[in-house]
Every structure is written in C-alpha cells, then in structure tokens.
Simulated assay, not measured.
Amino acid sequence: MFFSKLVMAALAATVLAEKTPVTPLLLANFERYAAFASAAYSSDCANPPFNSTVVRYINDVPTDTQATLFRDDIAQQFIISFRGTSDIQDFVTDLDQVLVPCVAQGIQCPTCLCWQGYLIQYNAVANTVKSAIDAGLLQYPGYSLVVTGHSMGGALASLAAASLDGQGLPLIAYTYGQPRTGNQAYANLIDSAFNGTMYRLTHTNDGVPQIPAQSDGYRHHSREYWQSDDPPTIENTFQCQGQEPSDCNQSEPGYGIGNGGIGINAAHLSYFGISTGNPLDPNAAC
C-alpha cells in the first residue's frame, strides 16, 4: 500500500512537472496581443495598441460579427482581432452550441465539427477578412500575420486561423479565454496545422475555457498557457501539456476535468493586466 502511494505521488509530480514557466519573450508577446484582443471591443479605436494603425473595421450586422485589422509598421505585422461577446445577439450566438460540420473556406476536415453559432459568425465575415488581409499583404509584402481574439473572439480567431492557414497564409495565433470550439477532430486539426504557433491563453479560474463540456463532444486543442496569478510574471505563467491539461486552468477549485464550467467571471474580464471585454470599460486598450 505504501509503495502504491509512492508511485501515485511520483506520477502526480511528473504530471505537475510538465507545466513549465514561460520565457520573458513569450510573456511580452502574450501581453502585446492581449492589448489587440481588447482593442477589438472598440468600434472606434482612437489610440490603437503599440502605435499601430487601424486598417479596417469589419462588421457583419445580421450576425453582429466584428473584427478589426491593425497594421503595426514597427513590428511589420498585420493583426486581425476578433471581438468577443458584447450584446444580446452575441449571447444568442453563444447559446447556439450544436456541433455541425466545420465547413469554411480552407478547412479540409470531413470529420471536424464546430460550434454552430461561431461557425456562422466566422463565415459571415470570412471573405471580407481574407480580402482585407490580402490587400494589406499586397501593399506590404514583407509583413507577417497574427490572428487574435478574446472569449467568443478567441473561438472566431481559432476558426479564422484554420481557414486562413488552409488558404496558404502563414500566421501565428493568440486566443484569450477561448471556449472549446470544436470536437476531437477539430482539436487534432489545429494541433497538426499549428505546431507551436497557436497559443491558447487562460487566466486563473476563468470559467469560459471550461465550456461547453467535453461530455457534449467538445475538445480543446493544445498549447494552453495559463496565467495562474496576478500580476503576470514568468514565474506564474506556464506552458501546459496536452489538449485538456488538468493542472492548469482546469485545476482551479470548482472545476471538474472538462466539465462544470461557470462561464463568465471576473477572471475572464482581464488578461495579462489588460481589461478585456469588460462592458464597463469597452475601450480599455484604445
């Protein structure tokens, strides 16, 4: 019995040891793109993050899907940032959680299923987003592309990344407080397409990454990076292993593994020291 307990303790320690602190460069990037994710909540960003320029506001009125395309001439980047939940129409979309075939331009995966509401939203702006990015890269051919978003915007960013990558656009993606977006096949697609270039950020006990439940057929893709405490430091921000790591965001009290999420809470409204998606502070990063 004693030996069994020692083995179990050793195994537990091994699992926890897989969680490793991030580098200063990674932390700086997480903070940087959190600002762009926050800025997408503003429809008139007077002071875009890092002295960037707003190239275009994209808004599909029927689905209330909004994204902002930024250009950062210092970093030589285009950043497309998708807005998260902001109004009643968005909450309707949030509730449309039926898994349906993940059909979008560039996504070649017959077994992939995605959140119906978010798939409808992305497809409503997909052509406009692609055209705006293409036009920007044509004018600035040496610039790179980053895709980001918070909450619902994180799910849209995940779909956009898969779609744009499938259409031949190299990119890096950062999602913040992203809910589960698709099924196991979709998670596997993201993992195979983005080997280390898709960062899924979570914050302390944020409840949104815990929904929808795995028991409903949903699965997170890998590369979770968890900010376990405030303020963010390299000592409390970790790279987590696997698609559903139990020692990061899911380790917080009140969560079962993959189930029992509580949705929006205080931790969801702040990422890497930046107010994000807070209805009382919609222009936080602008």
Score class of each variant (00 low, 15 high):
residue 144 S to M: 06
residue 144 S to F: 05
residue 82 F to M: 10
residue 79 I to W: 00
residue 37 A to V: 02
residue 15 V to M: 09
residue 55 V to C: 04
residue 8 M to E: 10
residue 145 L to E: 02
residue 11 L to R: 14
residue 266 A to V: 09
residue 193 A to I: 10
residue 262 I to R: 00
residue 169 L to Q: 12
residue 258 G to E: 05
residue 111 T to A: 05
residue 196 G to H: 08
residue 169 L to K: 13
residue 96 D to S: 08
residue 155 A to I: 09
residue 170 P to T: 09
residue 230 D to V: 08
residue 87 D to C: 12
residue 114 C to K: 00
residue 266 A to N: 05
residue 159 L to D: 04
residue 93 T to M: 13
residue 10 A to R: 07
residue 53 T to C: 04
residue 8 M to V: 13
residue 35 A to G: 10
residue 156 L to P: 08
residue 263 G to H: 07
residue 191 D to A: 15
residue 239 Q to H: 11
residue 28 A to M: 04
residue 59 N to F: 15
residue 181 T to M: 03
residue 38 S to V: 11
residue 197 T to R: 06
residue 196 G to F: 10
residue 203 H to F: 01
residue 115 W to E: 07
residue 56 R to L: 12
residue 194 F to H: 06
residue 108 Q to C: 06
residue 56 R to K: 15
residue 201 L to Q: 03
residue 275 S to A: 11
residue 204 T to W: 02
residue 269 L to Y: 14
residue 165 D to W: 11
residue 96 D to P: 11
residue 253 P to N: 02
residue 42 S to V: 15
residue 74 I to Q: 09
residue 44 D to A: 13
residue 65 T to A: 08
residue 217 G to N: 15
residue 29 N to M: 02
residue 158 S to C: 15
residue 202 T to V: 06
residue 130 K to Y: 07
residue 137 L to W: 01
residue 23 T to D: 14
residue 187 A to L: 09
residue 9 A to N: 14
residue 147 V to I: 15
residue 134 D to A: 14
residue 149 G to Y: 02
residue 145 L to S: 02
residue 262 I to L: 05
residue 285 A to H: 10
residue 98 V to L: 10
residue 145 L to K: 02
residue 44 D to K: 13
residue 42 S to D: 14
residue 179 P to R: 07
residue 65 T to E: 01
residue 23 T to R: 12
residue 270 S to M: 11
residue 146 V to L: 06
residue 167 Q to D: 15
residue 264 I to D: 01
residue 62 P to F: 11
residue 139 Q to H: 02
residue 89 Q to F: 08
residue 275 S to G: 04
residue 1 M to Q: 13
residue 201 L to M: 12
residue 81 S to M: 04
residue 44 D to N: 14
residue 85 T to G: 10
residue 105 Q to V: 03
residue 31 E to R: 13
residue 252 E to V: 15
residue 274 I to F: 07
residue 166 G to C: 10
residue 164 L to T: 06
residue 85 T to N: 11
residue 239 Q to K: 13
residue 123 N to I: 11
residue 104 A to V: 08
residue 150 H to Q: 06
residue 82 F to G: 07
residue 97 Q to V: 06
residue 4 S to I: 13
residue 237 T to Q: 01
